[in-house]
Simulated scan of single mutants.
Amino acid sequence: MSKYFTSAYRFGILGGALSVVSFIVLSLIYGDATNLNLVFGYVITPISIFIAIKIFKEYANAGYLSFAEGMSVGFVCYMVLASISCAGIWLTLMFWPDLFQEIKTSKLDVLSNNKDSIVSQLGVESYDMTLKSLSNLSQWDIGFNDAIWKIIPGLFFTIIISIILRKNPN
């Protein structure tokens, strides 16, 4: 079983660590780096999945890859990546409360600046519910949101990459 997941763990850990590092670096530059880190995640997630599946196919599976094997390796890779990213961002914000407050303030400012547009499109109830939700924002919410936005594209990319790299023995 470890032959299936060695490359997945390795590249999931690497991708998760790069995601946490990018969050910290982008936070030093921009303050609220949550949106930019999501964009970075859209780049690092498929790269990590592709390399993990490719390494598994070439070095652990004699050049063959079934769709199920690709999906399994990709799943482990993006779940490890998302878990490390979530934990790293959560811990960063726990130890750096000023950054968390800056992110929260930034999100509340964006909401208040777009109040008229939100109310006209979605109604006052939706705006009030969003305001209440943002007021109760925690460090965990930011880390968990980042993880979700690595898992959803991770599943999509895993399906595509598994189909592209699939090669069954004759």
Rank of each mutant, 00 (worst) to 15 (best):
V124N: 12
N61P: 01
Y78C: 02
F95A: 12
M79D: 00
A68Q: 10
V39R: 04
L108G: 14
A60V: 08
I118H: 11
L81R: 02
K54D: 01
V39C: 07
A87L: 14
V119M: 07
I51E: 02
N113H: 15
L81S: 04
V80Q: 03
K115Q: 13
K54F: 12
S85T: 11
M79P: 02
L122C: 08
P46M: 01
F100Y: 03
A60P: 03
A87I: 13
L93A: 03
I53A: 00
F50N: 04
I118V: 15
D109R: 12
S72E: 00
S120H: 14
E102M: 15
F95V: 10
E125D: 09
V124R: 13
S85Q: 07
D98E: 14
P46F: 03
K57P: 02
I51K: 06
I118L: 10
L93F: 07
G63N: 09
C77P: 00
C86S: 13
G88I: 06
I44R: 07
G41M: 06
Y64P: 07
Y42F: 14
L91R: 15
W96L: 15
M79W: 06
V76L: 05
A62K: 15
I103V: 15
I118R: 15
V124E: 14
A68D: 12
Y78K: 02
I51Y: 04
W90Q: 08
T92A: 10
I89E: 01
L108N: 07
F40D: 00
I44D: 00
D116Q: 14
Y59Q: 13
I89R: 08
E102C: 10
F56L: 05
L108P: 11
D116F: 11
F95W: 11
Y59A: 05
V76R: 04
P46E: 00
A82T: 02
I103F: 05
S106W: 09
L111F: 10
N114C: 09
V39W: 08
M79N: 05
I55S: 01
F67Q: 11
V124W: 08
I118E: 13
E58R: 15
E125A: 11
S120R: 14
G74C: 02
G63V: 07
F67G: 08
N61S: 08
V110P: 00
W90T: 14
D116W: 03
A60C: 11
K54W: 13
E69G: 06
M79I: 12
S85F: 03
L38N: 09
I49N: 04
I55T: 06
L108R: 08
K107L: 15
I89V: 13
D109N: 15
L108Q: 12
L99P: 01
I44K: 04
D109E: 15
